[in-house]
Design a protein around this nucleic acid. Structure first.
Lengths: 220, 220, 220, 220
DNA sequence: GATGAATGAGGGTTCATTCAT
DNA sequence: TATGAATGAACCCTCATTCAT
């Protein structure tokens, strides 16, 4: 029974709701860390950085409040590590992107489809949203994200876009502002959290239409 | 003379010591309200809704903490009134939009140029940013903004875009997802607050490039 | 129109209700003072000393907040002057009480009937209640009330009660503790504000029964 | 080691500096709760409900301000729990009152002696005083007290008084208004907080005299 | 005198953080 | 290592009091 820690927490007195609470106990440090990060993602997503309470994160993760501090320096570090933990897996992928040219349309379609599949279709959209909504208050995160993700993606695709534009496969503007490729996806994420209730938006369809536009009047 | 009794005696239990004296009286109520709103815009922009402290707003507006409550019910009302005060002037403009068709390119250019001039080029971009970053925590604001601004703009331009697309002046996708027209502008606003320090982005230029793309390969 | 001061107050924004608001204006100083005292009685009665807001007192009196300070030093003075203003008229009466003996029963009946008629049946019961409930925080008031009212009444009736008791018209205890005569009346006042809703109490009838008890088994 | 990044960087915007360290841990939760209640009784007694400051309660209890909120929802709950905690022990006693008739004088003497011993002679008199002075602003407490204490006592003794009166052991009025039995005790409590300084009152003696009066001229 | 906008100390409450167990 | 009770700085909001008009 040594394992049967007094629990009783889980819903407690504070009154906030709780969705998918993890109730596991005495797992491996890694699992614990992961549980806290998962709970943090949930809470930050719903309440924002300032609005999230570490007590709720702990409860949702099935650990005590103090335990969070065994794995993370403080609330800010938790937030930053959360973003990093969600972004890091992608970084590896970015490393291995083939540096060979391909038809512009194929490149752009891969990008947007990957975005829809891997971001919009997963919890990663919540991380993107957090970066967009909270990033201004976390220069370190903004810089990290820009340096590790955006700059690298841009560094990777911009040359290809430039060459494709030179080949006439793509408007010049896209090569100059590759942000244009993803912009609708980002807006779609925000739209989802703001207006979906009143006016749902099919982001995947919008992205396909967007790609169509990018190449309208171009030879395939 | 019953009331000319020596006072002070009792105190101790009851409390309040002495409030401060009133200082200035200069500004008109309207000016004062405006000053508070301006200060609130600054503070909310820099710190976000939760992070902003009303004491800082007051100081920045040159008034006392309590004065804010003479003009706004509470912090949330201040935030909502701020958004409304920045959005309302636009609403009038929207009313007077000409309901006559025009060439699609002209329509889109007007839209994007207006956006760049009136939003990106003014403090309104900060309001847009606040709506994007805090709106999820203010359903009322999100709904208000969607109903009063977005839905009306969409209701206004979508039919024109549909007809323009039918005339072949515009890709179908734009008519279906008018959000595509503005998406780069919104992303530009967010980019500005997140990455401009490391990687400046010329939003106006991007918007022009974007318009170019929307009409690439189309007859003028 | 000089007299038509901008009013608009009267219900304002604060949301508290308002019963018998006086809306007169530019009355005589005495009338103004009286209006403020009347309003103060209402507010203190309903909310207690700490709970009463001078803004509500002002509104109810039909004056501006600052006007109160022209007539009273501060909130505490207002409270004390209120008590004094309600008590003073009685003081004169006490002066003129006939110092002649009368049958004990008549004396006690006069006392209790006067209490029921002049206190229980009027707003004075609210002053008594205020003294009972707030007096502990206002030593000055407690002392004033004891000195000016209680001590004088006791000084007046105790000798008569003693003589009456000596004549066998009255239990010794009543002469020793004249408070016993009025105690039910005071409890009746408090009962009224606490439990009347659930369990109404006919204070007048209780007082009559009480007198009956005081003289039970006594010759008339 | 991604998480071992240098922190601190961001701060500025987010807020919280550093909370204080936990000091003692000694007392059991029950003892701590009791300490807070005891401190609250002191403060509420001296300053009244509105006038009492939770910071003073905390200091007096030897805990931090926030600790109070670990044991009580808010100030009002603290007050209500205080009243309940003082009243509850009596409730048990009331349950066990013998339902058998006894001579009226014995019944009344038990009542008054118990009142003097258990209320007047203990801190419970302060609770009674709080109920009397603050109850009007706490309908819940007034109702609770009436329902749990007063109504039950009345329900218990009234039938006995009625029968005793029928047997001629007691004036009719007492059976009709049992409040008369305790009224002097309540007045005594209030007198104590208001006038004892100037004019001490021996409540116990007054109660004995009162009982004597109730039965004067009656067969024992 | 009368007004009521402005002031700012005060206090209830929250919650990130600590540390005795 | 994990816990969660305890801490106390911070912050929103109230309202007695002041004073320019």
């Amino acid at each position: 029974m040594a394992q049967a820690t007094t629990r009783k927490a889980v819903q407690g007195a504070s009154g906030r709701k709780m969705a998918g609470a993890a109730k596991r106990r005495s797992a491996s440090p890694e699992a614990r860390r992961a549980a806290i990060l998962a709970a943090a993602l949930d809470e930050f997503t719903v309440r924002g950085y300032e609005g999230a309470r570490l007590e709720d994160v702990a409860r949702r993760a099935g650990v005590a409040k103090g335990t969070i501090y065994l794995y993370f320096t403080d609330k800010q570090a938790l937030f930053q590590d959360l973003v990093r933990s969600m972004v890091n897996p992608i970084l590896g992928t970015l490393e291995q992107l083939p540096q060979v040219d391909m038809p512009a349309r194929m490149l752009v379609e891969r990008l947007t489809e990957t975005f829809v599949r891997e971001i919009i279709g997963t919890r990663r959209k919540d991380i993107i949203r957090l970066i967009l909504t909270e990033g201004a208050r976390f220069p370190e995160i903004a810089q990290f994200y820009h340096r590790e993700v955006i700059a690298r993606i841009l560094g990777f695709i911009r040359p290809m876009l430039v060459r494709a534009a030179a080949r006439g496969e793509l408007p010049e503007g896209v090569a100059q502002f590759p942000q244009l490729i993803i912009a609708p996806g980002l807006v779609g994420i925000l739209w989802g959290s703001l207006f979906n209730k009143y006016d749902p938006l099919d982001v995947a369809a919008m992205m396909r239409a967007h790609v169509e536009i990018l190449f309208s009047g171009r030879p395939v």
